[in-house]
Amino acid sequence: MSEQANHPAPVSPVEQRVAALEALLTERGLVPEGFIEEITRRYESQIGPMNGATVVARAWTDPRYKRRLLADGTAAIAELGFGGPEGDHMVVVENTPAVHNVIVCTLCSCYPWPVLGLPPAWYKDPPYRARMVREPRKVLAEMGCPLPDEVQIRVWDSSAEVRYLVLPRRPPGTGGMSEAELAGLVTRDSMIGVARL
């Protein structure tokens, strides 16, 4: 329809509501100048799973760092310069041949922001939150992470102040890789525990 082609996409009701609240709070002087842009920039470029990948690659290459990481996740992660809101009380859980860990927040969407960034939409939506604590083996298989029956699954529901990071197993055949190359192999999903490397 030429009518549509000549007009921008209609503004959705939720966008109209956001704009209404933004306008009213701005008129009252409550929104600092540049604040929205600052929030956007921070989460788009500074905070994300590349931080967690750095932690994992260090743990894979430095056994003493790995011991510190498993003993006191918050302090060991801070050694690499990462910390802040939703990362003040970190516990790192290690995958082994016999144990697979996976994190969830059934009550809302708690997630370790400093090392993984903002959670993906599916992590915050009802199917993952409802099902991961009840049928994790099935959900993991559906998500492309089937596990042998003999592998124990440990689900961690982030219902209080601790935030979790999964330490995935180092893939075989990576013995000659540098720490930076190894970090490039580490995916966000492997650190949530919905994928293996």
Partner: peptide, 27 residues
């Protein structure tokens, strides 16, 4: 309080996505 609630379907998984898909979300 969704833990264990039944009737939900598959997880709409995506391996990667931008922090904000639309500007209003960041706002």
């Amino acid at each position: 309080d969704l833990g264990g609630m039944q009737g939900f379907g598959a997880v709409a998984h995506s391996p990667a996505e931008p922090a904000f898909q639309q500007r209003w979300q960041a706002v």
